[in-house]
Design a protein around this nucleic acid. Structure first.
Lengths: 359, 359
DNA sequence: TTGAAAGCGTTACCAG
DNA sequence: CTGGTAACGCTTTCAA
């Protein structure tokens, strides 16, 4: 294995000092045209690349940021990451990526690794369970700037790029109510899931505003282990709901994949969406446009959120002390899965006695 | 900004030498229980974290790998990245991520940054255009191990985790032929796209095997700029095809998103899939299962490919000289969009004179 | 215009 | 068991 070529190698080849080589490479003024040219040529010939570790160590300047997401192949997070990459590349930052997989210990490990690697800042979309952890304190103690994306953490006033989750849910549920649905079920995630709870709040608020009593039987917990199982979880949760005596007439799911499960169940039971069952998802993921009927869902502008998170981080790095917090306004994307009146378009059966009177 | 705490700070606080502190922290044997304990406690108290830059520089051991993909929010690549993350975390490697966005210059920049950052190895899914570049030579010259994922690069014999793309296309097209389709169109990407060309080859091979003359009018180039525009491109390409005098009776698309565009066009023209138009996509992305009818597609096991790529990289890093190359067997996932006979299930109209006789 | 030397935070070697 | 010293590759300061 050939050793890395360093300043020394160039210096020796040219019979000049290391200092001179460094100067030549860094475009300093106090150097003659010829030596500079010779140095540049030799560096090129030897395929010299500066050792960023040595440079950073010496200059005490580090140009790496760390990004932590629960899962890189999750649609929304991959989108946030994309936004971060866009900006990071422009600013010449390198991006270290870590997955927490919703595991607090792993999240902690990653943070510690990042700290060791002298990241200039961190952008983190905390694990679902993070509100019960102090993982971020590590960064606080080290005075490493960080921006939280998507998930509010405790009552913390950390710089944060959020989405108005409760309101997103509120808009979704109110929309269902306006469409005439009255028995709206909520497909949630684990109890400790901050996101799920925030949306639950919006769900309840919308019911309350319209004087619809909250029915705990209409709330089902889904076990969101990985990307693959979500649809199935949605399927089974909806199944339980629809086989009960008191059935809901609409489903509000904490994400689109769960909603897709509801579609599958509806198909199986010959329920027409949106006539027999209104469905609204969350995230505006790729599949939402491709489901039939197209799924009404809450938009989450991941790329923009990622880009803003990076901007905030940069602000924080350069010492901007103002409150770096932004909450993106919730926006409901109304499509056909929740529009009563759109039903005929997708009707497969003339009628279905069992569910026809569900309003 | 408080300075980073280092060995020196601990040493001073405890009135021992830096050497001793280093020993204590690193679990060396030649140190007394008490000093060790004191050191550990003080380190904890001061919130000490080793500076990985200094450690690496000194030990000349680097524990970072670089990953380069065209786009992090592209379904397949995010999935490859996931596989890499799985393994990297287990091996305690840090992962630097870079996007080429199919831009050779950007790809080169990223590679150079990675080299500067002393990555131990690189996993790269080259840009579409990479077969015309020498970007990988940078790594070769630096003797940095790398693994190419997904896209074969030139005639290069670089370690590689591939997918049998031509055969995937071959299976797809042969399947269509077996289902009775004869006028099969191909929705391709740019001419320089290695992937698109590999699939094109499989397409032509399948036609040849079954003595179906190749019709260049059935080949449409789509401009795949970003995630968003793909469906639209597929829509317009299919539109051109279906408005021509000599219409195809099936579409084989280079990816699922393009295929989704074909669905939209079919819906608009009231074409029944699969009866009037068979459709096969590529990638088995999330949407493929959710399209109606479900889309027949070619599987691409991104996670497994990513995991294997990391394993290969590790082999390469420890100096394993054997040929680290694996081509995943192509597998066609047959669903309803290409099964003649399944059509009634999704039929919306009794008949459609214009296209009914398209077989 | 050039070079010698110090030092970034750490570990390895050798001496005590 | 402990500590001094050199070195990793580079930049910076100071002196020539």
């Amino acid at each position: 294995m050939s050793k890395r070529v360093g300043l020394k190698d160039i210096a020796e080849a040219l019979n000049v000092s290391i200092t001179t080589v460094s100067r030549g490479l860094n475009n300093k003024f106090d150097i003659s045209k010829e030596t500079r040219k010779a140095i540049l040529e030799k560096a090129d010939e030897l395929n010299y690349r500066p050792n960023a570790y040595a440079v950073s160590l010496r200059k005490n300047e580090y140009f790496t940021i760390g990004v932590i997401v629960p899962s890189v192949d999750h649609y929304f997070f991959s989108t946030v990451l994309k936004g971060i990459m866009n900006k990071a590349h422009l600013s010449n930052y390198l991006v270290l990526i870590g997955e927490s997989t919703h595991d607090l210990n792993k999240e902690k490990e990653v943070i510690e690794q990042f700290v060791s690697h002298c990241v200039t800042g961190v952008i983190i979309s905390p694990s679902n369970k993070s509100s019960y952890s102090n993982n971020l304190d590590i960064l606080v103690k080290k005075r490493i700037p960080y921006i939280v994306v998507d998930r509010p953490v405790k009552e913390s006033d950390a710089p944060c790029v959020k989405y108005d989750d409760p309101n997103g849910a509120f808009l979704a549920v109110e929309h269902l109510i306006e469409q005439g649905y009255r028995k709206i079920a909520y497909l949630k995630s684990y109890d400790y899931c901050v996101i799920s709870n925030a949306r639950f709040q919006g769900y309840k608020d919308a019911l309350a505003k319209h004087n619809i009593p909250f029915n705990p039987n209409f709330v089902k917990t889904c076990h969101l282990i990985d990307q693959e199982n979500q649809e199935e979880e949605g399927f089974f949760a909806t199944k339980q709901l629809m086989l009960a005596v008191d059935k809901p007439d609409a489903i509000f799911a904490v994400n689109d994949d769960l909603a897709a499960g509801a579609y599958r169940l509806a198909e199986k039971l010959n329920l027409n969406i949106p006539r027999d069952l209104g469905v609204v998802g969350y995230s505006n993921s790729q599949i939402s446009r491709h489901l039939k009927p197209q799924l009404t869902t809450v938009e989450q502008p991941g790329i923009e959120m990622g880009e803003l998170a990076f901007d905030f981080l940069q602000q924080s790095i350069i010492g901007n002390k103002s409150k770096l917090t932004k909450t993106f306004d919730a926006r409901l994307i109304v499509r056909d899965s929740s529009i009563r009146g759109a039903e005929t378009k997708y009707k497969k059966q003339k009628d279905n006695k069992r569910y026809a009177n569900s309003i």
